[in-house]
């Protein structure tokens, strides 16, 4: 098996190396003239995101507006992954023994106090990443992962029960559903106002204080990213909880 794997890998590697190094029409690294960089689509994105959406960060604009369908179903994929992990590993124990706190398992005072100081700052930073994602790197996915990591930090520093008291399993699933509903809601709102699904420009008719389609896209993107953040936060926390406790959702790592 190992020998066969070696032969297969070596052959495929040689073919690919030949392909990337000696074929003439394979563009070299860093040429602006390669087909991928000269394609009308990417040129359109670079030239027009700022006038279409008022968002300086092209990646956010393309992610949440031009490719809105894609991102919506990526969010659904994350939600379904959470549901799948729940279905695979979750076990329900009736009247299970609660965790015995001994000297070894008691949370350490230095770690908990540092976490007390840091976790609000981490969550604030996650919100900053979310809200400032329009003009600097960041956005819903990154902010959601950082927020989820802050809950994981609570679970690591104290234990999972304390974290579940703040953000229970049921709340987490509800939040992840709410995230997708927020996302789809922005799409449906634009449908009801007479545009295509996820074509946010029309929302300026109902948003107070917004009078141009561009600014409507700007704010709708923020809303969509908030939806993404809800889903990613709760699913990351759930995955950690389920994996660290073999699906028991109590005590844990």
């Amino acid at each position: 098996m190992k020998k066969l794997a070696g032969i297969v890998v070596f052959t495929v590697g040689l073919i690919l190396l030949y392909g990337v190094s000696s074929l003439d029409d394979f563009p070299s690294w860093g040429t602006p003239d390669s087909p991928a960089n000269k394609s009308p689509l990417s040129q359109y994105f670079i030239k027009n995101t700022i006038v279409d959406t008022e968002v300086p960060n092209m990646v956010t604009a393309v992610l949440a507006d031009y490719r809105g369908y894609d991102t919506m179903f990526e969010t659904v994929v994350i939600f379904v992954a959470g549901l799948g992990i729940f279905a695979v590993v979750r076990v329900f124990e009736h009247g299970g023994a609660s965790r015995v706190v001994t000297a070894d398992t008691k949370p350490d005072i230095i770690i908990t106090n540092t976490c007390r100081l840091l976790i609000p700052l981490i969550q604030l930073f996650a919100l900053y990443v979310l809200a400032h994602g329009h003009s600097s790197p960041g956005g819903g996915f990154q902010g959601g992962v950082i927020m989820g990591a802050s809950f994981i930090l609570v679970a690591l520093a104290w234990d999972l029960d304390i974290a579940l008291k703040r953000f229970s399993e049921k709340q987490a699933f509800i939040c992840s559903g709410i995230g997708i509903l927020i996302y789809a809601g922005f799409g449906l709102a634009s449908v009801f106002l007479g545009e295509e699904f996820l074509n946010y420009g029309i929302i300026h008719k109902i948003l107070p204080g917004v009078d141009s389609p561009e600014m409507a896209r700007y704010y709708a993107m923020l809303g969509v990213e908030i939806g993404v953040m809800f889903t990613v936060t709760s699913i990351m926390f759930l995955i950690y909880g389920l994996l660290a406790t073999r699906g028991k959702m109590t005590a844990g790592l």
Partner: peptide
């Protein structure tokens, strides 16, 4: 500031 806070704490956690 954050490195001065977190690095000794993580060292302490690893030690423990």
């Amino acid at each position: 500031i954050f490195i001065m806070l977190t690095s000794p704490t993580s060292t302490h956690a690893l030690m423990k």
